[in-house]
Design a protein around this nucleic acid. Structure first.
Lengths: 107, 107
DNA sequence: ACCCTTTATGGCGATATTACCATGGAGCCA
DNA sequence: TGGCTCCATGGTAATATCGCCATAAAGGGT
């Protein structure tokens, strides 16, 4: 196990923080199926367009998505293909936690 | 691709948020090598003991770690084995972002 | 030129996060 | 009992996040 610098953990945390919002996770899941414009994502999320735009800026800033202008529209695209590993880890945590809570209820 | 509920994304986000702090990531990395008491983790992180204790409570609440009392000490233990997938995803994002920035500098 | 649509950004208030300090409980030992 | 260590919790101030509104820029059509 290599020792990592505090800065490395800070960098990791910045990425994790960008992922730590329900609307952003929802949009990432949608983007996994293909590129989407801001208007589509806005309808999907159900918040104000400005809010969605800011969420996308957060994802873009850490390099998870990239944008592409086409006329008046902006399309966003997933830039990393690793999110499946991320999901499965999160899901494993949720599963484990759920199991534990059920045991607690029975006990 | 299954459709997931907003609540599901909220649950995912809670887990991601628990992971989104440098000190917590550092501690998780240390815990991957074996159980550690709060005092060890406090020295590792370099913050106040109370701060570390609260970070551990955050990780415990979402089910990533569990604690075990031994006399006067409390040992924390990783409860999920999936963090490698999480790391590798984060690292992939960082790599991609770094590469892009280098291109921007050369351009 | 004018209007409509699509995005991005600034501002603001509400809420959440974070780190420190102080405190208190609990185990251990003399 | 008294003192020590280890740990958790409440309080508080600084900072960050979030969602909405208002606004502005820019493309496309008439």
């Amino acid at each position: 196990m290599k020792k990592k610098s505090k800065q490395h953990y800070a960098a990791r945390a910045r990425v994790a923080k960008a992922l730590a919002h329900p609307s952003r996770l929802l949009m990432l899941d949608a983007l996994a199926e293909g590129d989407k414009c801001v208007c589509e994502l806005t309808e999907l999320v159900g918040s104000e367009q400005s809010t969605v735009s800011k969420h996308l800026a957060v994802l873009k800033q850490v390099g998870i998505v990239e944008d592409r202008k086409e006329g008046v529209m902006t399309f966003y695209r997933l830039k990393v293909g690793c999110l499946e590993g991320f999901w499965s880890c999160i899901e494993a945590v949720l599963q484990e936690h759920l199991k534990e809570q059920q045991v607690a209820l029975r006990g």
